[in-house]
Design a binder for these strands. Structure first.
Length: 271
DNA sequence: AGAGGTACCTGGCAGC
DNA sequence: TGCTGCCAGGTACCTC
């Protein structure tokens, strides 16, 4: 489900319900997520007050003085704020009960997501250290990207989806950013000019920023934390539009496979 | 080092 | 109706 805009939308949605609130209870119904949910979580998180709700890459960091809950939504995860006592459904694996009569509930049918706990600096957690720069930050710029692309034969689409290069660019927004930049997704990263990489950096920033403004993309099951869908789907130029006409040139959008993932592009606009 | 493939897991849908 | 196969927004880990 979530790429960076969906995670950021979720963060903004849950923040006011969590910040400065005390955790009254933690219920783990299924520990078998991507990694087992650590046993210390209940004991060490309970009773703490939430001091910050941050995001690094697609991870959410729920901080307390005693440690940080690190959440990842995987492909199918979502977080909802619900009144305490709301009955859980099959894939509701984790509840955080708050002192305001509400609870934070993690639902994740495919269980590719994660709930980790660390008492140390979460940014140096093995899952977070070594990640590339944030796409909306200053460290992601054309000089950085050109350096990473140099000599690489890998396709540009796969390269920008590599979280060691830049975080937060998933399958939807990779296709969308390449469309905006006019770059063919199969183009070898090392063969793209500096000027075109500059366009790509701007396109990645623009598409992610716009998607955040519109509350993310709802394809089938993404919901914001209050249950409403995201509206960016209306702005998609290529993703999921195989066989339809390009908004810009009218040619038919194509779909291909790259590294087992679907890629969409316009053969008229992207070279 | 880089590139490619596989694995994890469930649900929805098309096609027979 | 029910089966089978394929597809899905992520990412770690394996091999060559």
């Amino acid at each position: 489900m979530p790429e960076l805009p969906e995670v950021e939308t979720t963060r903004k949605g849950i923040l006011p319900h969590l910040l400065n609130h005390r955790i009254q209870g933690v219920t783990v119904r299924n520990r078998q997520l991507r990694w087992p949910v650590p046993r210390q979580l209940e004991k060490q998180f309970q009773g703490q007050t939430i001091t910050a709700v941050e995001r690094r890459a697609k991870y959410l960091l729920i901080r307390t003085a005693n440690g940080t809950l690190i959440l990842h939504l995987g492909m199918s995860g979502s977080l909802r704020i619900l009144p305490e006592g709301t009955s859980p459904q099959v894939h509701d694996h984790l509840d955080i009960v708050l002192d305001n009569g509400m609870l934070l509930r993690l639902r994740d049918p495919r269980r590719f997501g994660a709930a980790l706990w660390t008492r140390a600096d979460p940014l140096s957690h093995p899952r977070l250290q070594g990640l590339g720069p944030e796409p909306l930050g200053n460290d992601f710029n054309v000089d950085y990207l050109a350096e990473k692309c140099r000599g690489r034969k890998q396709s540009i689409k796969q390269l920008i989806m590599d979280s060691h290069i830049v975080v937060g660019v998933g399958n939807i927004y990779a296709s969308e950013a390449l469309f905006l930049a006019g770059i063919h997704p199969a183009c070898a990263a090392g063969k793209i000019s500096h000027a075109r990489l500059a366009k790509l950096v701007e396109a990645v920033r623009d598409v992610l920023a716009q998607a955040i403004r519109e509350g993310g993309t709802t394809l089938r099951d993404f919901q914001q934390s209050d249950g409403t869908p995201g509206y960016f789907k209306q702005s998609l130029n290529v993703y999921g539009r195989a066989g339809e006409a390009c908004n810009r040139c009218g040619r038919m959008i194509k779909q291909v496979k790259q590294g087992q993932r679907s890629t969409y592009y316009c053969p008229g606009c992207q070279h």
